[in-house]
């Protein structure tokens, strides 16, 4: 399958996704394979004033998340410790689906961002990075003389 989801969906959502995929709206061609999922799952959006990046990275100490912006590329890296117990004969692990280990995801940002005004917040397991666009590139109404 072209598009692997970090969160599998229920059957109705899946049918809906197939329907949209057939219409070609979910095909991504980024060289970094942004469309392929992985940990953390990410949503990216933009407004005329800013670019907003959301990384769904639950269960991580915010102090250990490394967020870097260099040459218009945003990198989010860190490590998530496993909650599974050490091997023990009295403990059974029935389901083991949650991601653990090191992660790194990279997003290339548009050219008009201002690398000096970046804000990152972590709440309920979601890292939200907001990068403002440069004033000069924001839409302006041009007066007609």
């Amino acid at each position: 399958m072209l598009y692997r989801h970090l969160f599998p969906r229920d059957i109705f959502a899946e049918l809906d996704r197939l329907h949209r995929e057939m219409q070609g709206s979910e095909l991504y061609s980024s060289i970094r394979g942004l469309g392929r999922g992985g940990f953390p799952a990410m949503n990216v959006g933009g407004t005329p004033h800013s670019v907003e990046v959301y990384a769904f990275a639950p269960g991580i100490d915010p102090a250990t998340i490394d967020v870097q912006l260099e040459k218009g590329v945003l990198t989010i890296a860190g490590e998530r410790k496993s909650d599974l117990p050490e091997r023990d004969e009295k403990v059974a692990v029935h389901i083991d689906e949650r991601f653990s280990g090191r992660f790194r995801r990279v997003v290339s940002l548009p050219d008009d961002i201002d690398p000096e005004s970046v804000e990152a917040k972590y709440r309920d397991g979601v890292l939200h990075v907001s990068i403002r666009r440069r004033e000069a590139s924001q839409p302006r109404r041009i007066q007609i003389q």
Partner: peptide, 17 residues
Amino acid sequence: SRSEAALIPAVDVIEDA
């Protein structure tokens, strides 16, 4: 449009005594 559709969260399940 899809009030009932939902994502399935990843889980770990561990059993001890």
